[in-house]
Design a binder for these strands. Structure first.
Length: 811
RNA sequence: GCCGAAGUGGCGGAACUGGCAGACGCGCUGGACUCAAAAUCCAGUGGGAUUCACCUCCCGUGGGGGUUCAAGUCCCCCCUUCGGCACCA
């Protein structure tokens, strides 16, 4: 009885079945051993108004296949989904449309949930969370309070990155090329009151623990570079005629003898003190100019060096030389000590500056120990010259020696600096977690009591950003004005909200126990599931979410909340799904593919396997509307196999049986290594072979339906039923294979002459090396080829190749 | 500028620790079925030479060198594309 592949009916039927029977429900079953418990997580989506992007199902299908395979292999798998629902886009959309962000957000969430469910992912929907739910952000606030109590959240008035379009301050991580990561607007500098998290306190551990993580090297490297550890020394310089010391940081204390001038950042606190009256005017005008420059201008490409002499001199203690002190904006106040010793001979920037202002350049490091004319700064290591008693020392040894000597004299010490800055954590916007702090007239900054959490976001009509650096919450009088939890006196609430990243810093913890109202999650649930075993998402969060979440996790570890030092053990990054033209998908480029349309036309199963078949998970891949047909045909072809005669008692053809075992093996291995494209190819090969058979043994088809199930869950449930089995396939056991049946009886051996293919001979899979060579050399073809040639040697690799090295015999 | 990833048919991509380059899919060509078409099935499909008797040979994985019996895979130099960082002393 022939039946068409009616995906609309099939997918609806099984979607409802799964929902009703809670097929995807997961519980903390204590009888399952620890090594059979898995936590597989997707980066949860931001529920934007435009709905799911075809990029979302890529990562989600990958983890879904992995989870289904693992479940069928006897694992207890936690696989949850939720929504990262606080943030600017929702708020901007709300402002545009005049609807409240909470209304639009929940509407978007419903839309997203529907779209995600249509794809048949095996999420335990009873664990769904949204970061904007008060039940959830109560604990985000709770974590903030713990940070505050440990001194890791502090308030400061400082210049920060300000996006005038978003009307809020941003973290360093949210600035790209001097522009807002979100809207591409050039960043301005703004001096406003901020809440800041001391992520720098964790710099070393964030760096070191990268070693224990199974992450892509490129992501690890990006974090490593962002943290930017550099080892060197702080060295004190006396200032001529002034009882002040000027401290600099250098990674090359071995070049101290080559320091020919000093440079301070314009903002350096000593500038005023040491500037001479004659230079005062020039210095002040330079400072003023520098302060007006935006970050973008200050870091502009190929910018000419600028600077002004202060009139003061420092004394280089190693040789008592007086060297001039300059100020320049190429020295940053925020790094090191905000001051440097300039060694133009061995530092490119100093070289450029010295050339421009005619400052002396003295070589103190040499490749070979001799001195020579430098055409450019030579920053490579070598041997010391012109450095008194240190002459001839290798750079590394010199560094160590002089650092120790300076330390003994009390003039310097070994120092480590990081590029990582503290995390600017407050946003001057409405749609985020309120910071649970009040400002009391008497007591100052006072945290809310834990029992008073959650501090709910007031429901108001005006949530437009003020643009002034104040949050819109500041305008809500009856919310802002409150009493101090400590003294009961008059107080004002903190009106800044948390950045979007806050909620995603710990959502994976909440998933282990999402309805707990006593704790962020119970100890037992966290211990059962954490850490996340496999985490899949885009690479764009390399130094944002992935760094922030690691920071919070480490803090929670120190606080005794979680019991692992890292949150995400294995991380894989999916590539981008590009438009058909190979460009990034975007509305403005007009190349957006809507997953709803694809599902309506081909079904969710086809969309799933197409996205997996497109190429390696990690690669960026262009969408191809033509190409998806092939995957649709594949499923139809599998479906048509059921029109053949299928019997339990039919004899099993040896080659089909071998191919089945090989396929079971390959598909399992490829799922384990997340190489879904080749797993699908193998199933296609198997299907093509089955298709040629008139009759099919039923158990073969059963096994095949099982291995196809993780990829195409809907249609395989239907097929399972067509085989007379009871649902769900997900609850069956993954088929096993016999290793000896994964190889063909006869294998093709390449026969080469001087590395060039001359013949292919099929041989029994267990021929010995000698037999192989004998068969190969005695084939008619090879005999002919080898006529009149001298065999120099024969190289053979069992099961692969026989290569004869020959030479033509000259008569 | 620095760091990282990647360049394979008309297209997406295969090729395990060096061992038959182009699996699988799209597209294309021819054929079967059909009144016809769609769908499906069968055959072919890197380029070239030979002249088709499908036999044989040569070239071919961004370019140029090298190591090796053997290189898409290893080493050196260069080019292109993408991603990250951007005066971090």
């Amino acid at each position: 009885m022939s039946k068409n592949y009616d995906f609309l009916t099939i997918e609806k039927k099984w979607r409802e079945y799964w929902d009703q029977h809670k097929i995807f429900k997961v519980a903390e079953d204590p009888s399952i051993p620890e090594d059979k418990r898995l936590y597989v997580l997707d980066m949860f989506p931001y529920p934007s108004g435009s709905g799911l992007h075809v990029g979302h199902p890529e990562g989600y299908t990958a983890t879904d296949i992995y989870c289904r395979y693992k479940k069928m292999s006897g694992y207890n798998v936690l696989h949850p989904m939720g929504f990262d629902a606080f943030g600017l886009p929702a708020e901007n959309y709300a402002i545009q449309t005049g609807t409240h962000p909470s209304e639009t957000t929940y509407k978007n969430i419903d839309h997203f949930r529907g779209q995600i469910k249509a794809l048949g992912f095996c999420y335990d929907w009873d664990r769904e969370i949204s970061t904007c739910d008060a039940d959830y952000y109560k604990w985000t606030q709770w974590i903030f309070l713990q940070l505050f109590k440990k001194g890791l959240a502090y308030e400061a008035q400082m210049p920060i990155n300000w996006c005038p379009k978003c009307g809020t301050g941003l973290a360093n991580e949210e600035v790209k090329d001097g522009r807002c990561d979100r809207c591409d607007t050039p960043i301005e500098r703004k001096n406003i009151r901020q809440w800041i998290l001391k992520i720098t306190a964790y710099a070393e551990r964030l760096l070191k623990d990268l070693d224990v993580l199974d992450w892509n090297d490129s992501i690890k490297l990006m974090q490593e570079n962002w943290i930017g550890k550099s080892e060197g020394a702080e060295v004190d310089f006396e200032i001529s005629g002034l009882n002040e010391k000027l401290r600099v940081f250098t990674t090359r204390p071995d070049t101290l003898f080559g320091a020919t001038y000093m440079v301070l950042a314009p903002e350096h606190p000593l500038v005023g003190k040491l500037t001479t009256p004659e230079q005062k005017k020039a210095v002040e005008s330079y400072i003023k100019e520098a302060s007006r420059k935006s970050d973008l201008q200050r870091t502009e490409l190929n910018k000419e060096k600028s600077g002004v002499f202060t009139g003061a001199y420092a004394i280089n203690s190693v040789n008592q030389k007086q060297i001039p002190i300059w100020i320049s904006d190429y020295v940053l106040i925020s790094y090191g000590t905000g001051a440097i010793m300039a060694v133009p001979a061995h530092d490119e920037r100093d070289f450029e500056f010295a050339k421009k202002f005619g400052l002396p350049i003295i070589q103190v490091v040499s490749k070979d120990g001799s001195s020579y004319e430098l055409q450019e700064a030579e920053s490579t290591e070598g041997f010391a010259i012109g450095s008194g008693k240190y002459n001839g020392m290798k750079t590394a040894d010199f560094k160590k020696a002089i650092t120790e000597d300076l330390e003994k004299q009390g003039k310097g010490k070994k120092t480590i600096n990081y590029k990582l800055r503290d995390w600017v954590f407050s946003r001057q916007r409405y749609w985020g977690e309120p910071i649970p702090i009040v400002h009391c007239e008497k007591c100052g900054i006072v945290p809310l009591e834990e029992k008073d959490l959650p501090l709910k976001l007031p429901e108001v009509k005006t949530y437009k950003p003020t643009g002034t650096g104040e949050s819109p919450l500041a305008l809500i009088e009856d919310w802002v004005n409150t009493t101090c939890p400590k003294c009961g006196g008059r107080a004002k609430r903190e009106t800044n909200t948390m950045p979007q990243w806050a909620g995603s810093c710990w959502y994976y913890i909440r998933f282990t126990d999402p309805r707990n109202d006593k704790d962020l999650a119970s100890k037992s649930s966290m211990e059962y599931w954490l850490p996340v075993d496999l985490y899949i998402g885009g690479a764009e969060h390399a130094v944002l979410h992935l760094l922030y979440a690691r920071f919070w996790h480490k803090f929670l570890y120190d606080s005794g909340v979680v019991n692992t030092i890292e949150p995400f053990m294995t991380l894989r990054n999916q590539g981008m799904v590009l438009g058909e033209n190979g460009e990034k998908m975007s509305k403005s480029r007009g190349n957006v593919i809507n997953p709803d349309d694809v599902i309506a036309e081909h079904g969710a199963d086809t969309l799933r396997i197409y996205e997996m078949f497109m190429g390696p998970l990690s690669a960026d891949k262009p969408w191809n509307t033509q190409g998806i047909i092939g995957l649709r045909r594949f499923l139809e072809k599998v479906f048509r196999l059921f029109d053949k005669e299928i019997e339990e008692s039919l004899p099993v053809n040896d080659s089909i049986n071998r191919l089945l075992h090989k396929t079971i093996k390959i598909v399992g291995e490829r799922i384990d290594s997340l190489e879904f494209n080749t797993a699908i190819s193998q199933m296609m090969v198997f299907t093509n072979a089955l298709q040629k058979e008139e009759k099919i043994n039923k158990s073969i088809l059963r096994d095949f339906v099982k291995i196809l199930h993780p990829f195409a869950p809907f249609v395989t449930e239907e097929m399972w039923e067509m085989l007379g089995e009871r649902p769900s396939v997900l609850k069956t056991k993954w088929p096993s294979y016999r290793e000896e049946l994964t190889q063909d009886e006869k294998i093709a051996i390449a026969v080469q002459e001087n590395g060039k293919l001359r013949d292919t001979i099929f041989m029994s899979k267990d021929v010995t090396k000698q037999e192989m060579e004998e068969i190969a050399l005695n084939s008619d073809k090879m005999k002919k080829i080898l006529e009149n040639k001298e065999k120099i040697k024969v190289i053979s690799v069992p099961g692969k190749v026989v290569n004869v090295v020959t030479r033509i015999v000259t008569a």
